[in-house]
Amino acid sequence: MAGIFVFSEDSALAGQLLTPALELKKSLSQPVIALTLSEADAQKLAQLGADKVVVLQSAGKWVEGFAEAIYAQVSIAGASVLLVGGTLRGKHVASYVAAKLNAGMTTDAKALRIEGGKLQTTRVLYAGLAVCEEEVALPAVATIRPRTFLPPATAATAGTIETAAAETDTRISVDEVVSTSAEGIDITAANKLVAVGRGFRKKEDLTIAEDLGAVLKAELACTRGVAEDDHWLPIERYIGISGQTVKPELYFAVGLSGQVQHMVGCRESKVIVAVNNDERSPIFEAADYGIVGDLYEVLPLLTAALGK
C-alpha cells in the first residue's frame, strides 16, 4: 500500500493540489488519492486526475475536527506524501496529521520533487528574506498555499469515488461562524492591483489611489499597517506574510516602503511599479519601474495621463 494523498476543504485549492501530486506520481509510481468533505468536489477531483477520491462523511462540520480521520486514511494506506491546502484550517489539520505520523512537514512549499527517496521542497524563511531547500523523509507532509499551482487539465479517465464514515473531534464546539469577506472581493484573483501604504496621510486620501485603480482597472490592496492598525481597508486586502499572497500582472505600490514582510506577498507579480518620495526606500530595489516623488502630486497626474 502506498499513495500520494491530497486534502483541502477549499474547492479550488483541492484542484490545484493535484498538479504537484500528479508530478510526484511520475517519480513515485503511486496512485493519487484525494480526500474531501464535499460530494461536489469529489466529482471534480476525480475528473482532474485523482485515481481515487474518498469523501469523508460525518455529522461534524468543523474541518479541523477531521484531522484524526484524515490521519487514519493516510496511515492505513501507508501514504508516502500528504499535500494539504495551506489555508489556516489546512495547516492545523496537516500539523496534526504530521505529528501523528511522526513525519516532517514543509509549510507553504513552493516546489516539490522526489529525489533520493525523499521529498525535496522549497520554501521561504525569515518572512521571505531567505529561500530554503528542505529534504523531508517519507512519509512527508507539505502544505501548499492557494494559487501556487494551476489546476491540472481534465484527465482522460476519471478516478473512482468512495465514501468513508469519519469520526470527528467533538471536544470543541463551534458556536458561530461569521463571514468576514462581506464585500465578496477576492483580490488574489485580480489581474492588477494598486497597493497603498502609510505614505497616505488619511483614509480620505485613498480616493486618489482608487482613481488610479479605476483607470488601470485595478483593485485596491494595502500593507498590514493600513488594514490592521489604521483599519482604512478591510483585512482581506492586506498583502504580506500573514496576509494575502498575490501574483498579478501589475502590482502598483504607492506610499509603501517595501519591507520584506510585505514584499513576500507580492514579489511574484509580473511587473512591480513603485511611487515613493524616498529614493532610498527598499521598494525601488523590488520594482521594475518607479517614480521618486510625492504621491499626492504624482498620482493625480498619472491618473489623468492614463485616462487619456
Binding site: 511522526n102 513525519a103 516532517g104 512537514m105 514543509t106 525535496q120 521561504v124 524563511l125 521571505g128 528574506l129 531567505a130 529561500v131 530554503c132 531547500e133 528542505e134 529534504e135 523531508v136 523523509a137 512527508a140 514584499m263 514579489r267 512591480i272 529614493e279 525601488f284 530595489e285 523590488a286 520594482a287 521594475d288 519601474y289 518607479g290 517614480i291 521618486v292 516623488g293 510625492d294 502630486e297 504624482v298 497626474l301 498619472l302 495621463a305
Partner: peptide, 30 residues
C-alpha cells in the same frame, strides 16, 4: 529531524529597477 534544511539562500529580486526621478513630476509620469 525528519525535515532537513539542505540550503538557505538570501532571496534576490530580479527586477528592472528603472526609476524616474526628474524634478518634473509630469515628465516622470510621461
Amino acid at each position: 529531524p525528519k525535515a532537513v534544511r539542505k540550503s538557505v539562500k538570501g532571496f534576490v529580486m530580479q527586477r528592472k529597477n528603472i526609476i524616474y526621478k526628474e524634478t518634473s513630476a509630469a515628465e516622470n509620469v510621461a
